[in-house]
């Protein structure tokens, strides 16, 4: 992973990061034009240097490497707010929207980048191992940045190694870190990764063609996706997914997600990377 980060960042920033943190624990780097650079080590944010201000050139340089100097070629991805880079690194972007005929046509003058670095962490928690041994439909819940995706990866790998056929819907390349057809993060022996295909399309086509036991999806969002998941559950496929939410009660009050909760067995609440808060068995209450 370090080589991908080294290639992506300007030399001066990378050297400073190496001197200030353990790159293997780096989870996020935030570049905002004309503002200080922040990075997160295991989810904790720090300023790189008080006097270092991110320049427009720093942002252009990262974008040039991430897009192989072909920003235009990433337009559809940019419209979704991110660029996928090698090794499963996802770069969230924000800038100025260009509206054409009432629709967002492209984003120009990009001023902020949120570089998210994927991790595989061995989670030593018996409750998770129990959950894997008695797997049923599971949602992983937390606020952003607390390690939902990390736990999802861990569970995918272990369920997959247990012999479950897991279909990994990796729209942004973040779960598998796949680049050039090579999985950079081990997701186990029986996982099948669907890379770069919009999830809503993948649910319908891949369930029929790949016959999964479990579908894994990161950051489910909105009514359409929930409907797709309910269809999969109806077909007998189990679901393992993450949702941005700090509180399951809020989820229950939401009519869209409440429909999904009728079919979910476990809710995993986490309070930090690799740190499980509690597991709620909805059948037991």
């Amino acid at each position: 992973m370090e080589e991908f980060i080294e290639r992506l960042l300007p030399v001066s920033i990378f050297n400073e990061l190496v001197s200030k943190c353990d790159i293997s624990r780096l989870t996020e780097i935030r570049l905002r034009a004309q503002k200080p650079l922040y990075f997160a080590e295991n989810g904790r944010y720090q300023k790189l240097l008080p006097e270092y201000i991110v320049s427009d050139q720093d942002i252009k340089s990262v974008l040039a490497v991430a897009t192989k100097s072909s920003l235009y070629a990433y337009n559809s991805s940019i419209l979704d707010g991110f660029i996928s880079y090698d090794g499963g690194i996802r770069i969230g972007i924000s800038g100025e929207g260009v509206i054409k005929n009432g629709n967002l046509s492209s984003i120009k003058n990009i001023t902020s980048l949120c570089i998210r670095i994927p991790h595989y962490i061995d989670i030593k928690d018996v409750r998770i191992n129990e959950l894997i041994n008695h797997f049923d439909n599971t949602l992983i819940l937390s606020r952003p940045g607390l390690g939902k995706t990390t736990l999802l990866r861990y569970m995918i790998r272990h369920l997959s190694d247990e012999g479950f056929n897991i279909l990994v819907l990796d729209e942004r390349g973040e779960l598998s870190g796949m680049s050039m057809g090579k999985e950079n993060i081990n997701l186990g022996e029986c996982s099948d990764t669907v890379l770069g295909i919009p999830k809503l399309q993948a649910y319908a086509s891949q369930v029929r063609s790949m016959r999964p036991d479990i579908i894994a999806s990161d950051e489910i969002f909105g009514e359409k996706e929930v409907e797709c998941i309910l269809d999969c559950i109806r077909c007998g496929v189990k679901i393992l997914a993450t949702v941005h939410s700090g509180d399951p009660e809020i989820l229950k009050k939401n009519s869209i997600y409440n429909k999904l909760l009728q079919y979910v067995r476990y809710i995993v609440l986490i309070k930090g990377i690799g740190n499980i808060d509690k597991i709620i068995d909805l059948r037991r209450g």
Partner: peptide, 8 residues
């Protein structure tokens, strides 16, 4: 390669 799609 540095401009967004429309501008490029």
């Amino acid at each position: 390669g540095t401009l967004d799609y429309d501008n490029q």
